[in-house]
Every structure is written in C-alpha cells, then in structure tokens.
C-alpha cells in the first residue's frame, strides 16, 4: 500500500512539474477570471475573447466570474493563482485606481500584462429634451448652479467626471448609480441632468435619439459616433475613458506569456471577434505586453493626480 502511494505521489509530482514546464503549454483547459458578473461589458468581452482564443490555442478556456469590490476580489484572486499560464485574468482600469484608494491590496505590478484588448472613451450624455446643446452649455450651467447639477454616476468615485471637474474647476452633484444600466434610465426619466458612459453602453439610446451626445472624451472622433465632436474640438482638453486587457500572475514564464500574446493577437484579428466588438460599439485597441504595461503605468499616474 505504502509503495503504491509513494509511486503515485512521485508520478503525480512529475506530472505537476511537467505541467509547469512551458514547452508543451497549453496542455489542459485554461481558466479566465472575469472580475465582474455575467452579462456585463467586461464579462461579454471576456467570453468573446475566450471563445476566439480557444480555437487558436486548441484548448478550452473556461470563464470564471469572480465578482466583488468593483473588480478587486476577482483581480486579487487572479494575481494570487499559480503562475503557470492556466489562469488568465481580465484586468480593467480598476487595477490602476482601486489600489490608490486603499481598496485593493494587489496592484498592476502583481501581473504580467499580456495584451490590451479595448480602449473606449467616455461620452457625455443628456436627455433629448435637455437645454444643453454642447459642453460649453453644460460647464456654464454647472458653474451657475454651483454644485446642483445632477450627474448620474456609474461608479464611485467617477473618474470621467473628476477629470472634467478638475480641468474646468467645477463641481457637480454626483449621484452614484449601479452601472450604466441604472444611470441611463435616470437621465432618460429626467431624474438627473447628465451622465458619462462608454459608447457601447448607450449606443442604442443615442441612435434612437433618446439621449443626446454632447461630446466624446477622446483625442479624435470615434467611428461609432462620427457626428459627435470631441471635447478637445470644443475647447476642453479632457481625454478619459476605460480599458480592458489580459494579465497573468507576475512569475509566469516568459515563453508562456509569448504563446498567449501571439494567440490573443490572432484572436483579436479574427472576424468573429471584430464583428462582436463592432456590434457592441467597442474599439479594439491591441497593445503588446510592453506598450500595455507602459500605458498602465501612465494611467496609474493620471488617476493618482485625480485621487489625491
């Protein structure tokens, strides 16, 4: 009996070591941790990417929703997994903001960032019968009303709003709603004056005319809203938005990271994934490991300036 146990353990230990070795990666199913609940934007991007990547890697990718703490729980969980490349984590902009607010122990440094997947600007939205026609109107009203203009916030604190507030030295009454699906009805029903969400979250209301897009918070106009001027064009130098990418625990071997990176490049270029992102009015923004890491470092600095 003892002998059997010993040999089994030895064999198991060998397979264990083998599974860590990067040469035959991937040799089993891969998990993808999504730090938000099923049905949200991050979840659907994660699932679509998993679906597109599984054919490239020839291994199934199982999406695992691990929600809580505005993404902190899932991302911390992902950072703490075995660094063998079998646990991927969808990292979102919260990895740059939450640690600085003391709401998350892990930081972006606990990950090896593999690829950025999408980068979407925020859009400033008011209801169709709102008196404001452009950003200047809005900023003027905010100054006049001195903090009484009601802003439907999709998160607390809201960095899109804080960027505008800081640059224009204004203050809005930010009312925290639980995501875009609550903030948009609050504007539609005229319970609040203005909101800022990403294009994908409001494209149907913008197209139908229920919501008016006053400006896009990007460097250049975006393909989904060609008629909407940027804030820069209107004389307000505010660029902000949100991004998502994929990371693995920081000690993952480089060969594995490269294999995954190449697989994601193919997956993001696949017609299915492109079509999915286009349908959802999201912009694929493929940055490689180095550029993505650099980008996140900068974003941490930007957000730090807003937070402190």
């Amino acid at each position: 009996m003892k002998k059997i146990i010993k040999t089994t353990l030895a064999a198991a230990a060998l397979t264990f070591i083998a599974s860590v070795s990067a040469a035959d990666y991937p040799s089993k199913n891969i998990r993808m941790v999504v730090p938000f609940s099923p049905g949200g934007g991050t979840d659907s991007v994660g699932r679509a990417l998993a679906n597109a990547t599984k054919d490239v890697l020839d291994q199934n990718i199982i999406v695992m929703n691990r929600t809580g703490g505005a993404g902190a729980v899932g991302m911390s969980f992902g950072a703490g997994q075995r660094p063998d490349g079998y646990t991927l984590t969808v990292v979102t902009r919260e990895i740059a903001s939450l640690p600085q607010m003391g709401l998350m122990q892990h930081t972006a440094d606990d990950f090896k960032l593999i690829r950025m997947v999408n980068l979407d600007p925020a859009v400033v939205l008011v209801s169709q019968d709102s008196p404001y026609q452009n950003i200047a109107d809005l900023v003027a009203a905010a100054k006049k009303k001195d903090g009484a203009l009601k802003f439907a916030s999709t998160a607390k604190p809201n960095f899109y709003l804080m960027a505008l507030e800081k640059s224009q030295n204004i203050k809005l009454n930010a009312i925290p709603y639980n995501g875009a699906s609550e903030a948009i009805p609050a504007v539609l029903g005229n319970h609040t004056d203005v909101t800022m969400v990403t294009p994908g979250e409001a494209i149907s209301q913008i197209k139908s005319g229920q919501l008016k897009a006053l400006g896009v918070m990007s460097e250049e106009r975006i393909a989904y809203l060609p008629q909407t001027p940027t804030l820069k064009e209107q004389g307000f130098d505010v660029v902000t938005g949100t991004w998502r990418g994929i990371g693995v625990p920081k000690n993952t071997p480089d060969e594995v990271v490269e294999t995954l990176g190449a697989a994601f490049d193919k997956a993001m270029a696949s017609p299915d994934f492109k079509q999915f992102m286009e349908n959802g009015a999201m912009t694929i923004h493929n940055l490689d490991a180095k550029a993505f890491t650099e980008f996140v470092k900068n974003d941490v600095k930007n957000l730090g300036a807003l937070i402190n």
Binding site: A12, A13, T15, F16, I62, M64, R82
Partner: peptide, 16 residues
C-alpha cells in the same frame, strides 16, 4: 454547466 469545481490545494498532485 461549465463550472470548474474546486480542485483543492493539492490539485497538482492528484488531477493533472
């Protein structure tokens, strides 16, 4: 259901 059940702390030793 595509739910990965817990593999346990010794997962590497038993199921790989």
């Amino acid at each position: 259901f595509y739910v990965a059940l817990p593999e346990g702390l010794f997962a590497g030793l038993f199921y790989d």
